Simulated scan of single mutants.
Amino acid sequence: MNFLPDNINKYVVDHSQKEPELLLQLNKETWQKVLNPRMLSGAFQGRILSMISKLIQPNNILEIGTYTGYSALCLAEGMKKNGLLYTIDKNEELEDFAKKYFNKSNYQNQIKQFVGNALDIIPTLNEKFDLVFIDADKSNYGNYFNLIIDKMNPGGVILSDNVLWSGKVVEEINPKDIDTKALIKYNKLLNSDDRIETVLLPIRDGLTISRVK
Rank of each mutant, 00 (worst) to 15 (best):
I203P: 12
T30M: 01
G69I: 00
K100Q: 02
L22A: 04
K81W: 08
D89A: 00
I173W: 07
Q17M: 15
D96A: 04
P58W: 04
G69C: 04
P175Q: 04
P37L: 03
T124P: 09
N2A: 11
I48K: 00
G156E: 07
Y141W: 08
D205K: 00
K18S: 11
I56V: 07
N174M: 05
N153E: 15
N7Y: 09
W165Y: 15
N59R: 05
N143Y: 08
Y141E: 06
K151R: 13
K33C: 11
V13R: 13
L26T: 02
N60V: 01
I134W: 09
G78L: 09
Y186N: 12
G42Y: 03
I134L: 15
N146E: 10
N106V: 09
H15I: 09
N36C: 01
I8D: 07
I184Y: 07
W31S: 07
S166R: 13
M39R: 10
T66N: 00
D14Y: 03
F114T: 01
N109A: 01
S192L: 06
K168A: 13
M152A: 10
Q110N: 01
G69L: 02
L62I: 10
K213A: 14
F114E: 00
S16P: 04
D130G: 01
L159R: 02
L190W: 05
V169M: 12
S71V: 00
G69F: 04
D96H: 01
S166I: 12
V34W: 08
D194N: 15
Y101V: 03
G65E: 10
M39F: 07
M152S: 10
N140H: 06
Q57D: 05
V13I: 15
T30E: 01
L201Q: 03
K128E: 15
G78F: 05
L24H: 13
E197P: 15
V163H: 13
W165I: 11
T198F: 11
L189W: 10
Q25S: 12
L35D: 15
Y186L: 14
L183H: 01
P123I: 02
M152Y: 11
S210Y: 07
N162F: 11
T208R: 02
K100R: 03
V199N: 13
K54A: 13
L94T: 02
D89C: 00
G167M: 05
K99Q: 06
K168N: 14
V115Y: 02
F3A: 09
N36I: 01
D120F: 06
S105A: 07
D179M: 11
D179V: 14
G83M: 14
D135L: 08
D193L: 12
G78W: 06
E95Q: 02
N162W: 13
I52G: 12
L55T: 14
P175I: 12
V199K: 14
M152F: 14
N2G: 08
N146M: 02
N9W: 14
L40P: 06
E29A: 06
H15W: 06
Q25Y: 12
V170A: 05
L4A: 14
N162K: 06
K99Y: 11
I122M: 03
